[in-house]
Design a protein around this nucleic acid. Structure first.
Lengths: 243, 243
DNA sequence: CGAAGTCTTGAATTCTATCAATAGGGGTGG
DNA sequence: CCACCCCTATTGATAGAATTCAAGACTTCG
Protein backbone atom coordinates (compact mmCIF):
# COMPACT_ATOMS: atom_id res chain seq x y z
CA UNK A 1 0.00 0.00 0.00
CA UNK A 2 2.57 2.56 -1.12
CA UNK A 3 1.90 6.27 -1.23
CA UNK A 4 1.03 6.38 -4.90
CA UNK A 5 0.42 9.93 -5.99
CA UNK A 6 -1.23 9.01 -9.25
CA UNK A 7 -3.24 5.83 -8.94
CA UNK A 8 -6.99 6.20 -9.28
CA UNK A 9 -8.10 3.54 -6.86
CA UNK A 10 -11.32 3.14 -4.92
CA UNK A 11 -11.54 5.43 -1.93
CA UNK A 12 -13.94 5.92 0.96
CA UNK A 13 -16.79 8.30 0.33
CA UNK A 14 -15.20 10.89 2.57
CA UNK A 15 -12.35 11.44 0.17
CA UNK A 16 -14.31 13.63 -2.22
CA UNK A 17 -15.41 15.85 0.65
CA UNK A 18 -11.77 16.22 1.68
CA UNK A 19 -10.79 17.45 -1.72
CA UNK A 20 -13.59 19.97 -1.99
CA UNK A 21 -12.73 21.47 1.33
CA UNK A 22 -9.08 21.72 0.50
CA UNK A 23 -9.79 23.12 -2.93
CA UNK A 24 -12.02 25.74 -1.37
CA UNK A 25 -9.47 26.62 1.22
CA UNK A 26 -6.78 26.97 -1.39
CA UNK A 27 -8.69 29.29 -3.66
CA UNK A 28 -9.84 31.31 -0.67
CA UNK A 29 -6.22 31.69 0.36
CA UNK A 30 -5.48 33.33 -2.95
CA UNK A 31 -3.63 30.62 -4.83
CA UNK A 32 -0.93 30.28 -2.22
CA UNK A 33 -0.57 26.52 -2.00
CA UNK A 34 -1.17 25.29 1.51
CA UNK A 35 1.50 23.35 3.30
CA UNK A 36 0.81 19.71 4.07
CA UNK A 37 0.27 20.56 7.70
CA UNK A 38 -2.17 23.32 6.83
CA UNK A 39 -4.04 21.02 4.47
CA UNK A 40 -4.49 18.38 7.13
CA UNK A 41 -5.36 21.05 9.63
CA UNK A 42 -8.13 22.43 7.46
CA UNK A 43 -9.77 19.02 7.19
CA UNK A 44 -8.99 17.83 10.67
CA UNK A 45 -12.67 17.58 11.57
CA UNK A 46 -12.91 14.77 9.04
CA UNK A 47 -10.17 12.79 10.71
CA UNK A 48 -10.62 10.82 13.88
CA UNK A 49 -9.49 12.71 16.95
CA UNK A 50 -7.75 10.29 19.29
CA UNK A 51 -6.18 10.45 22.71
CA UNK A 52 -3.26 8.50 24.15
CA UNK A 53 -2.00 8.34 27.70
CA UNK A 54 1.64 8.69 28.69
CA UNK A 55 3.77 5.78 27.40
CA UNK A 56 0.88 4.34 25.41
CA UNK A 57 1.80 3.13 21.91
CA UNK A 58 0.29 5.06 19.02
CA UNK A 59 1.48 2.42 16.60
CA UNK A 60 4.02 -0.33 16.92
CA UNK A 61 6.97 -1.22 14.73
CA UNK A 62 5.93 -3.52 11.90
CA UNK A 63 2.18 -2.96 12.09
CA UNK A 64 0.32 -2.14 8.85
CA UNK A 65 0.69 1.56 8.08
CA UNK A 66 -2.83 2.50 7.11
CA UNK A 67 -3.20 5.83 8.83
CA UNK A 68 -1.38 9.13 8.84
CA UNK A 69 -1.40 11.45 11.82
CA UNK A 70 -1.15 15.08 12.80
CA UNK A 71 -0.15 15.80 16.37
CA UNK A 72 -2.48 18.27 18.11
CA UNK A 73 -0.92 18.37 21.56
CA UNK A 74 1.56 16.47 23.67
CA UNK A 75 4.78 14.87 22.50
CA UNK A 76 5.70 11.63 20.84
CA UNK A 77 8.84 9.55 20.52
CA UNK A 78 9.57 7.73 17.29
CA UNK A 79 11.68 4.67 18.04
CA UNK A 80 13.00 1.38 16.80
CA UNK A 81 13.66 -1.75 18.76
CA UNK A 82 16.19 -4.51 18.12
CA UNK A 83 15.21 -8.14 18.69
CA UNK A 84 17.28 -8.18 21.87
CA UNK A 85 15.46 -5.19 23.30
CA UNK A 86 17.77 -2.29 22.59
CA UNK A 87 15.97 0.88 21.66
CA UNK A 88 16.86 3.86 19.52
CA UNK A 89 14.75 7.00 19.80
CA UNK A 90 14.97 8.39 16.29
CA UNK A 91 13.16 11.62 17.04
CA UNK A 92 10.77 13.50 19.29
CA UNK A 93 7.65 15.04 17.80
CA UNK A 94 5.56 17.90 19.12
CA UNK A 95 2.29 19.72 18.49
CA UNK A 96 1.83 20.36 14.79
CA UNK A 97 4.22 17.65 13.67
CA UNK A 98 3.25 14.95 11.21
CA UNK A 99 3.52 11.25 11.78
CA UNK A 100 3.20 8.03 9.83
CA UNK A 101 3.93 9.30 6.32
CA UNK A 102 5.87 6.24 5.19
CA UNK A 103 6.08 4.62 1.81
CA UNK A 104 6.04 0.95 2.73
CA UNK A 105 3.10 -1.14 3.87
CA UNK A 106 4.35 -1.37 7.44
CA UNK A 107 5.56 1.04 10.07
CA UNK A 108 9.36 0.95 10.11
CA UNK A 109 9.36 2.46 13.61
CA UNK A 110 7.09 2.66 16.63
CA UNK A 111 5.42 5.83 17.90
CA UNK A 112 4.75 6.19 21.62
CA UNK A 113 3.21 8.95 23.69
CA UNK A 114 5.84 10.69 25.83
CA UNK A 115 3.17 12.76 27.54
CA UNK A 116 -0.61 12.62 27.15
CA UNK A 117 -1.24 13.07 23.44
CA UNK A 118 -4.08 14.27 21.27
CA UNK A 119 -3.85 13.76 17.54
CA UNK A 120 -5.94 13.45 14.42
CA UNK A 121 -5.74 10.25 12.40
CA UNK A 122 -6.64 10.10 8.72
CA UNK A 123 -7.14 6.94 6.70
CA UNK A 124 -4.14 6.53 4.46
CA UNK A 125 -6.26 5.95 1.40
CA UNK A 126 -7.91 9.31 1.95
CA UNK A 127 -4.58 11.02 2.10
CA UNK A 128 -3.38 9.28 -1.03
CA UNK A 129 -6.50 10.31 -2.88
CA UNK A 130 -6.04 13.85 -1.62
CA UNK A 131 -2.46 13.86 -2.83
CA UNK A 132 -3.43 12.44 -6.20
CA UNK A 133 -5.64 15.44 -6.90
CA UNK A 134 -3.84 18.23 -5.13
CA UNK A 135 -0.46 19.52 -6.14
CA UNK A 136 -0.05 21.45 -2.89
CA UNK A 137 -0.37 18.28 -0.86
CA UNK A 138 2.22 16.56 -3.02
CA UNK A 139 4.61 19.44 -2.58
CA UNK A 140 3.97 19.30 1.13
CA UNK A 141 4.69 15.59 1.26
CA UNK A 142 7.99 16.02 -0.52
CA UNK A 143 8.89 18.85 1.82
CA UNK A 144 7.96 16.79 4.87
CA UNK A 145 10.08 13.86 3.73
CA UNK A 146 12.99 16.14 2.85
CA UNK A 147 12.94 17.79 6.24
CA UNK A 148 12.73 14.45 8.01
CA UNK A 149 15.73 13.23 6.05
CA UNK A 150 17.59 16.44 6.81
CA UNK A 151 16.87 16.00 10.52
CA UNK A 152 17.97 12.37 10.49
CA UNK A 153 21.25 13.30 8.82
CA UNK A 154 21.92 16.04 11.33
CA UNK A 155 21.38 13.52 14.09
CA UNK A 156 23.71 11.07 12.36
CA UNK A 157 26.36 13.76 12.68
CA UNK A 158 25.63 14.06 16.39
CA UNK A 159 25.92 10.33 17.01
CA UNK A 160 28.87 9.87 14.69
CA UNK A 161 31.07 12.78 15.74
CA UNK A 162 30.14 14.11 19.16
CA UNK A 163 30.89 13.09 22.75
CA UNK A 164 28.43 13.09 25.62
CA UNK A 165 28.62 16.77 26.53
CA UNK A 166 28.34 17.83 22.91
CA UNK A 167 25.40 15.53 22.27
CA UNK A 168 23.53 16.95 25.24
CA UNK A 169 24.23 20.53 24.13
CA UNK A 170 22.94 19.71 20.65
CA UNK A 171 19.85 18.14 22.12
CA UNK A 172 19.04 21.08 24.38
CA UNK A 173 19.51 23.59 21.59
CA UNK A 174 17.35 21.57 19.24
CA UNK A 175 14.59 21.40 21.82
CA UNK A 176 14.84 25.16 22.28
CA UNK A 177 15.09 25.79 18.57
CA UNK A 178 11.53 26.96 17.90
CA UNK A 179 11.78 29.76 20.44
CA UNK A 180 14.23 32.54 19.70
CA UNK A 181 16.84 31.91 22.30
CA UNK A 182 17.58 34.20 25.21
CA UNK A 183 19.85 33.26 28.08
CA UNK A 184 17.70 32.39 31.06
CA UNK A 185 15.00 30.71 28.99
CA UNK A 186 13.40 27.79 30.74
CA UNK A 187 13.10 24.54 28.85
CA UNK A 188 10.57 21.81 29.63
CA UNK A 189 11.92 18.29 29.34
CA UNK A 190 8.74 16.32 28.83
CA UNK A 191 10.74 13.16 28.10
CA UNK A 192 12.52 11.16 30.78
CA UNK A 193 16.22 10.51 31.14
CA UNK A 194 15.91 7.08 29.55
CA UNK A 195 14.29 8.61 26.48
CA UNK A 196 17.09 11.16 26.21
CA UNK A 197 19.69 8.44 26.68
CA UNK A 198 18.23 6.27 23.93
CA UNK A 199 18.04 9.32 21.68
CA UNK A 200 21.67 10.32 22.22
CA UNK A 201 23.18 6.84 22.22
CA UNK A 202 24.20 7.08 25.89
CA UNK A 203 23.14 5.44 29.14
CA UNK A 204 20.83 7.07 31.64
CA UNK A 205 23.72 7.45 34.09
CA UNK A 206 25.87 9.24 31.54
CA UNK A 207 22.97 11.58 30.74
CA UNK A 208 22.74 12.47 34.42
CA UNK A 209 26.46 13.01 34.71
CA UNK A 210 26.68 15.09 31.55
CA UNK A 211 23.87 17.33 32.75
CA UNK A 212 25.69 17.74 36.06
CA UNK A 213 28.85 18.67 34.18
CA UNK A 214 27.05 21.28 32.09
CA UNK A 215 25.65 22.72 35.30
CA UNK A 216 29.11 22.86 36.88
CA UNK A 217 30.38 24.60 33.75
CA UNK A 218 27.70 27.24 34.25
CA UNK A 219 25.99 26.47 30.95
CA UNK A 220 22.69 25.42 32.49
CA UNK A 221 20.67 25.36 35.70
CA UNK A 222 18.58 22.37 36.73
CA UNK A 223 15.75 23.64 38.95
CA UNK A 224 14.20 20.17 38.78
CA UNK A 225 14.65 17.08 36.67
CA UNK A 226 11.98 18.16 34.19
CA UNK A 227 13.21 21.69 33.60
CA UNK A 228 16.46 23.16 32.35
CA UNK A 229 17.41 26.82 32.35
CA UNK A 230 19.72 27.75 29.49
CA UNK A 231 22.13 29.96 31.37
CA UNK A 232 24.90 30.34 28.80
CA UNK A 233 23.68 29.69 25.29
CA UNK A 234 26.97 30.73 23.71
CA UNK A 235 28.72 28.01 25.70
CA UNK A 236 26.19 25.44 24.54
CA UNK A 237 26.59 26.54 20.95
CA UNK A 238 30.37 26.31 21.23
CA UNK A 239 30.07 22.79 22.57
CA UNK A 240 27.97 21.39 19.76
CA UNK A 241 29.75 23.43 17.11
CA UNK A 242 28.45 21.76 13.98
CA UNK A 243 28.09 23.85 10.86
CA UNK B 1 14.65 27.01 -5.44
CA UNK B 2 12.58 24.25 -3.83
CA UNK B 3 11.42 21.18 -5.70
CA UNK B 4 8.00 22.53 -6.53
CA UNK B 5 5.96 19.87 -8.20
CA UNK B 6 3.26 22.20 -9.38
CA UNK B 7 4.65 25.60 -10.32
CA UNK B 8 4.54 26.52 -13.98
CA UNK B 9 7.76 28.46 -14.22
CA UNK B 10 9.99 29.16 -17.20
CA UNK B 11 12.17 26.18 -18.11
CA UNK B 12 14.98 25.50 -20.56
CA UNK B 13 13.92 24.38 -23.98
CA UNK B 14 15.14 20.86 -23.30
CA UNK B 15 12.43 20.27 -20.74
CA UNK B 16 9.66 19.64 -23.27
CA UNK B 17 11.77 17.04 -25.03
CA UNK B 18 12.35 15.29 -21.71
CA UNK B 19 8.67 15.00 -21.09
CA UNK B 20 7.84 13.63 -24.49
CA UNK B 21 10.44 10.95 -24.22
CA UNK B 22 9.32 9.91 -20.78
CA UNK B 23 5.67 9.97 -21.77
CA UNK B 24 6.47 7.76 -24.73
CA UNK B 25 8.46 5.39 -22.61
CA UNK B 26 5.65 5.11 -20.11
CA UNK B 27 2.90 4.32 -22.59
CA UNK B 28 5.17 1.89 -24.38
CA UNK B 29 5.77 0.13 -21.09
CA UNK B 30 2.05 -0.52 -20.82
CA UNK B 31 0.97 1.97 -18.17
CA UNK B 32 3.43 0.67 -15.63
CA UNK B 33 4.82 3.89 -14.22
CA UNK B 34 8.59 4.04 -14.51
CA UNK B 35 10.67 4.44 -11.41
CA UNK B 36 12.53 7.67 -10.96
CA UNK B 37 15.78 5.93 -11.78
CA UNK B 38 14.32 4.46 -14.94
CA UNK B 39 12.96 7.83 -15.99
CA UNK B 40 16.29 9.50 -15.61
CA UNK B 41 17.96 6.57 -17.32
CA UNK B 42 15.73 6.87 -20.35
CA UNK B 43 16.65 10.51 -20.82
CA UNK B 44 20.25 10.25 -19.76
CA UNK B 45 21.48 11.32 -23.18
CA UNK B 46 19.93 14.72 -22.48
CA UNK B 47 21.89 15.15 -19.28
CA UNK B 48 25.54 16.05 -19.13
CA UNK B 49 27.81 13.04 -18.67
CA UNK B 50 30.59 13.97 -16.29
CA UNK B 51 33.64 12.27 -14.88
CA UNK B 52 35.35 12.68 -11.51
CA UNK B 53 38.64 11.32 -10.28
CA UNK B 54 39.14 9.58 -6.97
CA UNK B 55 38.60 11.97 -4.01
CA UNK B 56 37.41 14.75 -6.29
CA UNK B 57 34.38 16.69 -5.00
CA UNK B 58 31.17 16.32 -7.02
CA UNK B 59 29.56 19.09 -5.02
CA UNK B 60 30.47 20.69 -1.74
CA UNK B 61 28.40 21.29 1.35
CA UNK B 62 26.50 24.58 1.11
CA UNK B 63 26.87 25.14 -2.60
CA UNK B 64 23.72 25.97 -4.60
CA UNK B 65 21.82 22.80 -5.40
CA UNK B 66 20.94 23.33 -9.03
CA UNK B 67 21.59 19.89 -10.45
CA UNK B 68 20.44 16.37 -9.78
CA UNK B 69 22.56 13.34 -10.57
CA UNK B 70 22.38 9.70 -11.48
CA UNK B 71 25.48 7.63 -10.80
CA UNK B 72 26.58 5.56 -13.80
CA UNK B 73 29.69 3.92 -12.39
CA UNK B 74 32.05 4.21 -9.45
CA UNK B 75 31.13 5.03 -5.89
CA UNK B 76 30.44 8.21 -3.99
CA UNK B 77 30.47 9.22 -0.34
CA UNK B 78 27.89 11.66 0.97
CA UNK B 79 29.34 13.51 3.93
CA UNK B 80 29.03 16.48 6.23
CA UNK B 81 31.79 18.48 7.83
CA UNK B 82 31.80 20.39 11.12
CA UNK B 83 33.52 23.77 11.34
CA UNK B 84 36.36 22.15 13.29
CA UNK B 85 36.98 19.57 10.59
CA UNK B 86 35.21 16.50 11.88
CA UNK B 87 33.53 14.49 9.16
CA UNK B 88 30.52 12.21 9.10
CA UNK B 89 30.02 9.95 6.09
CA UNK B 90 26.24 9.74 5.90
CA UNK B 91 26.16 7.15 3.14
CA UNK B 92 27.95 5.47 0.27
CA UNK B 93 26.34 5.50 -3.17
CA UNK B 94 26.92 3.15 -6.08
CA UNK B 95 26.07 2.70 -9.75
CA UNK B 96 22.40 3.43 -10.35
CA UNK B 97 21.96 5.50 -7.20
CA UNK B 98 20.51 9.00 -7.26
CA UNK B 99 22.15 12.06 -5.84
CA UNK B 100 21.30 15.67 -5.10
CA UNK B 101 17.52 15.42 -4.77
CA UNK B 102 17.19 17.94 -1.96
CA UNK B 103 14.46 20.39 -1.21
CA UNK B 104 16.45 23.41 -0.08
CA UNK B 105 18.43 25.82 -2.22
CA UNK B 106 21.78 24.54 -1.00
CA UNK B 107 23.44 21.16 -0.65
CA UNK B 108 23.16 20.07 2.98
CA UNK B 109 26.02 17.61 2.47
CA UNK B 110 29.02 17.15 0.22
CA UNK B 111 29.42 14.42 -2.39
CA UNK B 112 32.91 13.13 -3.17
CA UNK B 113 34.18 10.45 -5.51
CA UNK B 114 35.44 7.42 -3.58
CA UNK B 115 36.68 5.84 -6.80
CA UNK B 116 36.69 7.23 -10.32
CA UNK B 117 33.11 8.18 -11.04
CA UNK B 118 30.94 8.64 -14.10
CA UNK B 119 27.53 10.21 -13.68
CA UNK B 120 24.84 12.11 -15.55
CA UNK B 121 23.88 15.56 -14.30
CA UNK B 122 20.51 17.13 -15.08
CA UNK B 123 19.60 20.77 -14.51
CA UNK B 124 17.32 20.93 -11.53
CA UNK B 125 14.78 23.05 -13.34
CA UNK B 126 14.44 20.34 -15.95
CA UNK B 127 13.77 17.75 -13.33
CA UNK B 128 11.21 19.95 -11.64
CA UNK B 129 9.41 20.56 -14.90
CA UNK B 130 9.49 16.84 -15.58
CA UNK B 131 8.02 16.13 -12.16
CA UNK B 132 5.32 18.78 -12.60
CA UNK B 133 3.96 16.97 -15.63
CA UNK B 134 4.63 13.37 -14.83
CA UNK B 135 2.98 11.49 -12.01
CA UNK B 136 5.43 8.61 -12.27
CA UNK B 137 8.36 10.90 -11.61
CA UNK B 138 6.61 12.35 -8.58
CA UNK B 139 5.94 8.90 -7.21
CA UNK B 140 9.55 8.04 -7.83
CA UNK B 141 10.76 11.13 -5.99
CA UNK B 142 8.62 10.30 -2.96
CA UNK B 143 9.91 6.74 -3.03
CA UNK B 144 13.51 7.91 -3.29
CA UNK B 145 13.13 10.27 -0.35
CA UNK B 146 11.34 7.63 1.72
CA UNK B 147 14.06 5.08 1.12
CA UNK B 148 16.78 7.58 1.93
CA UNK B 149 15.01 8.39 5.19
CA UNK B 150 14.60 4.71 5.94
CA UNK B 151 18.31 4.14 5.35
CA UNK B 152 19.28 7.08 7.54
CA UNK B 153 17.11 5.80 10.38
CA UNK B 154 18.61 2.34 10.12
CA UNK B 155 22.04 3.90 10.38
CA UNK B 156 20.92 5.92 13.39
CA UNK B 157 20.17 2.60 15.04
CA UNK B 158 23.67 1.37 14.21
CA UNK B 159 25.37 4.45 15.66
CA UNK B 160 23.06 4.69 18.63
CA UNK B 161 22.96 1.07 19.78
CA UNK B 162 25.88 -0.92 18.43
CA UNK B 163 29.51 -1.37 19.43
CA UNK B 164 32.46 -1.53 17.08
CA UNK B 165 32.18 -5.18 16.07
CA UNK B 166 28.45 -4.90 15.51
CA UNK B 167 28.82 -1.73 13.45
CA UNK B 168 31.36 -3.38 11.21
CA UNK B 169 29.18 -6.46 10.75
CA UNK B 170 26.23 -4.23 9.82
CA UNK B 171 28.40 -2.34 7.37
CA UNK B 172 29.73 -5.45 5.66
CA UNK B 173 26.27 -6.98 5.33
CA UNK B 174 24.87 -3.76 3.94
CA UNK B 175 27.61 -3.59 1.36
CA UNK B 176 26.89 -7.18 0.40
CA UNK B 177 23.15 -6.68 0.45
CA UNK B 178 22.49 -6.44 -3.28
CA UNK B 179 24.04 -9.85 -3.96
CA UNK B 180 22.27 -12.85 -2.50
CA UNK B 181 24.69 -13.89 0.14
CA UNK B 182 26.70 -17.09 0.09
CA UNK B 183 29.50 -17.83 2.51
CA UNK B 184 32.79 -17.33 0.73
CA UNK B 185 31.57 -14.35 -1.28
CA UNK B 186 34.25 -11.79 -1.87
CA UNK B 187 33.46 -8.18 -1.12
CA UNK B 188 35.25 -5.21 -2.66
CA UNK B 189 35.92 -2.37 -0.26
CA UNK B 190 36.31 0.54 -2.63
CA UNK B 191 36.39 3.02 0.26
CA UNK B 192 39.38 3.45 2.53
CA UNK B 193 39.61 2.77 6.26
CA UNK B 194 39.14 6.46 7.08
CA UNK B 195 35.91 6.54 5.08
CA UNK B 196 34.63 3.47 6.92
CA UNK B 197 35.66 4.97 10.25
CA UNK B 198 33.84 8.24 9.57
CA UNK B 199 30.81 6.27 8.46
CA UNK B 200 30.68 4.10 11.57
CA UNK B 201 31.60 6.78 14.09
CA UNK B 202 34.90 5.10 14.95
CA UNK B 203 38.58 5.87 14.45
CA UNK B 204 40.67 4.34 11.73
CA UNK B 205 42.61 2.34 14.31
CA UNK B 206 39.46 0.87 15.80
CA UNK B 207 38.27 -0.10 12.34
CA UNK B 208 41.52 -1.99 11.78
CA UNK B 209 41.29 -3.70 15.13
CA UNK B 210 37.64 -4.64 14.72
CA UNK B 211 38.35 -6.19 11.34
CA UNK B 212 41.21 -8.15 12.90
CA UNK B 213 38.85 -9.35 15.63
CA UNK B 214 36.24 -10.49 13.11
CA UNK B 215 38.98 -12.38 11.29
CA UNK B 216 40.11 -14.05 14.52
CA UNK B 217 36.50 -15.01 15.20
CA UNK B 218 36.43 -16.72 11.82
CA UNK B 219 33.69 -14.49 10.48
CA UNK B 220 35.78 -13.02 7.65
CA UNK B 221 39.02 -13.34 5.74
CA UNK B 222 41.08 -10.35 4.69
CA UNK B 223 43.07 -11.35 1.59
CA UNK B 224 44.09 -7.71 1.21
CA UNK B 225 43.00 -4.41 2.62
CA UNK B 226 40.53 -3.77 -0.20
CA UNK B 227 38.81 -7.14 -0.16
CA UNK B 228 36.88 -9.06 2.47
CA UNK B 229 35.69 -12.64 2.21
CA UNK B 230 32.49 -13.28 4.13
CA UNK B 231 33.41 -16.60 5.70
CA UNK B 232 30.60 -16.97 8.24
CA UNK B 233 27.57 -14.91 7.31
CA UNK B 234 25.45 -16.32 10.13
CA UNK B 235 28.00 -15.05 12.62
CA UNK B 236 27.91 -11.60 11.03
CA UNK B 237 24.12 -11.57 11.10
CA UNK B 238 24.11 -12.60 14.74
CA UNK B 239 26.47 -9.76 15.56
CA UNK B 240 24.42 -6.98 14.04
CA UNK B 241 21.13 -8.51 15.11
CA UNK B 242 18.77 -5.64 14.48
CA UNK B 243 15.24 -6.51 13.48
C1' DC C 1 63.87 1.76 -6.20
C1' DG C 2 62.34 5.28 -3.27
C1' DA C 3 58.81 8.02 -1.25
C1' DA C 4 54.25 9.08 0.10
C1' DG C 5 50.24 7.43 1.53
C1' DT C 6 47.63 3.85 3.79
C1' DC C 7 47.08 0.26 6.98
C1' DT C 8 48.23 -2.41 11.12
C1' DT C 9 49.76 -3.12 15.76
C1' DG C 10 51.16 -1.73 20.55
C1' DA C 11 50.86 0.89 24.99
C1' DA C 12 48.77 4.32 27.72
C1' DT C 13 44.94 7.33 28.50
C1' DT C 14 40.20 8.85 28.41
C1' DC C 15 35.53 8.26 28.08
C1' DT C 16 31.48 5.67 28.74
C1' DA C 17 29.13 1.55 30.55
C1' DT C 18 28.13 -1.28 34.28
C1' DC C 19 27.02 -2.43 38.89
C1' DA C 20 25.37 -0.81 43.16
C1' DA C 21 23.53 2.14 46.49
C1' DT C 22 21.18 6.38 47.72
C1' DA C 23 18.18 10.30 47.09
C1' DG C 24 14.29 12.67 45.36
C1' DG C 25 9.26 13.17 43.69
C1' DG C 26 4.68 12.17 42.72
C1' DG C 27 0.76 9.70 43.62
C1' DT C 28 -2.21 6.71 46.51
C1' DG C 29 -4.41 5.31 50.50
C1' DG C 30 -4.97 5.52 55.21
C1' DC D 1 -2.61 15.87 55.58
C1' DC D 2 0.77 12.78 56.17
C1' DA D 3 3.11 8.43 55.45
C1' DC D 4 4.39 5.23 52.47
C1' DC D 5 5.68 3.21 48.17
C1' DC D 6 7.03 3.08 43.51
C1' DC D 7 9.33 5.08 39.94
C1' DT D 8 12.85 8.00 38.40
C1' DA D 9 17.06 10.32 38.89
C1' DT D 10 21.63 11.02 40.95
C1' DT D 11 26.06 9.69 42.58
C1' DG D 12 30.04 6.55 43.49
C1' DA D 13 33.32 2.81 42.34
C1' DT D 14 34.93 -0.23 39.02
C1' DA D 15 35.38 -2.37 34.59
C1' DG D 16 35.48 -2.18 29.76
C1' DA D 17 35.60 -0.11 25.24
C1' DA D 18 37.38 3.17 22.16
C1' DT D 19 40.66 6.98 21.44
C1' DT D 20 45.09 8.81 21.32
C1' DC D 21 49.90 8.74 20.57
C1' DA D 22 53.55 6.29 18.48
C1' DA D 23 56.01 3.12 15.71
C1' DG D 24 56.42 -0.06 12.11
C1' DA D 25 54.71 -2.69 7.78
C1' DC D 26 52.59 -2.76 3.54
C1' DT D 27 50.89 -0.56 -1.11
C1' DT D 28 50.98 2.15 -4.69
C1' DC D 29 52.88 5.03 -7.86
C1' DG D 30 56.12 8.11 -9.85
Amino acid sequence: MPITLSSARATPSDARAFENIVAGAMTAAGMTPLSLTDCLHKIQDYGARRHFNRNEPIFVQGEPANQVYRLISGSVRLCRYTPDGRRSVMDFLFAGDLLGFVEGAHQPAAAEAVSDVTLVAYPRQCFERLAANNAGVRTGLVRHLSRSLEGAQQHLMVLGCQNGKERMASFLLRLADPMDLVCGDRLDLVMGRQDIADHLGLTIETVSRVLATLRELGAILIPNSHQIVLRDIAALRALCAQS
